[in-house]
């Protein structure tokens, strides 16, 4: 759907993006993670024709895009970091304004506004000035604005930042629904738990893409396959049996790294009268991956 090949960007001779490449596929959720100032919002702005890129190329549906290309803006819906609205206008007036600029027909637009306000639970506030809305309500309204014209790609910049848990859950469910409808979602977030739950592909950026792929692949790449065995028995015997493996013994658990097969290890342990009560893979979450990557980045610099 969208191919980004080696784009770069600088502000005042300071590189903020270097050789950034990735693919956004139809019906997938792509999470873009990185520390503050890593270039997440800059990437989103470039992909929405708000900032120009200085090198590389952006290809949307096999068509090469120019900087500030209007085709990028027609095909995408953007949830900005700050949900800016005309505060004295009500929700309907705001949405009608932005929907009209997207070229929507008046009748279709009015129907869509009503339908989406109901879906997002804002219908009863439709005639209330947006300036009186809570942060969560504004964020929902901004999501409606981003989705109003039924875009193929939805860019969400920190969609759940400082939202209450209920609204955050609403946003996560919405992203899952968008994926089911075949929309591509580009999600920039600091919420690693959220990204882990809903992403098909994760990219870590720190001016350039540090690493990207499905979460499981990243875990294996960074930590290898690690297995935990809970046991009862003599530790010396265990050390002898596992002498050819990368392992450590922690209380009543054995942690074995980079395991390719577990059956031989289990057989050897059982044959040596080691009582094995549980065997399970060690779980790493996205936060651990993130921290590992960040610490590697710090070491580099």
């Amino acid at each position: 759907m969208l191919n980004v090949n080696g784009i770069c960007k600088s502000f005042n001779n300071r590189n903020v993006l270097e050789n950034v490449s990735f693919k956004l596929e139809r019906g997938k959720v792509f999470s873009y993670l990185g520390p503050n100032g890593a270039g997440k919002t800059t990437t989103i702005r470039i992909l929405n024709g708000l900032l120009k890129f200085e090198c590389g190329e952006i290809i949307l549906e096999n068509e090469k895009m120019n900087p500030y290309d209007v085709r990028l803006r027609k095909r995408s819906g953007l949830l900005t970091e700050n949900p800016g609205f005309y505060e004295r206008f009500d929700a309907v007036k705001n949405l009608r304004f932005f929907g009209s600029l997207q070229g929507m027909d008046d009748n279709v637009l009015n129907e869509r506004i009503t339908e989406m306000l109901k879906e997002f639970g804002l219908y009863e506030y439709k005639n209330t000035p947006v300036g009186t809305y809570s942060k969560g309500m504004k964020q929902k309204l901004a999501l409606i604005r981003a989705l109003l014209h039924d875009p193929d790609i939805v860019y969400l910049d920190e969609p759940t930042a400082s939202l209450d848990p209920e609204t955050s859950l609403f946003v996560r469910n919405l992203i899952s629904d968008l994926r089911k409808k075949g929309k591509s979602v580009f999600l920039s977030t600091h919420n690693l738990n959220e990204a882990e739950q809903i992403s098909d592909w994760v990219a870590f950026i720190n001016r350039t893409i540090v690493v990207q792929g499905p979460i499981e692949n990243l875990k294996n790449m960074l930590f290898g396959k690690t297995v935990i065995i809970e046991f009862e028995g003599e530790r010396e015997k265990i050390r002898e049996i596992l002498k050819n493996y990368d392992f450590e013994i922690l209380d009543s658990r054995i942690k074995i790294r980079n395991v390719s097969g577990i059956s031989k290890i289990l057989k050897d342990l059982l044959d040596s009268d080691i009582n094995v009560s549980y065997v399970y893979p060690e779980e790493h979450n996205l936060e651990e991956i993130y921290m590992e990557l960040i610490s590697n980045e710090y070491k580099k610099h």
Binding site: G84, E87, Q102, R145
Partner: peptide
């Protein structure tokens, strides 16, 4: 009102 970004993001 920070509306310039969503405004410029339209076609």
């Amino acid at each position: 009102q920070r509306t310039i970004e969503p405004l410029l993001a339209t076609p």
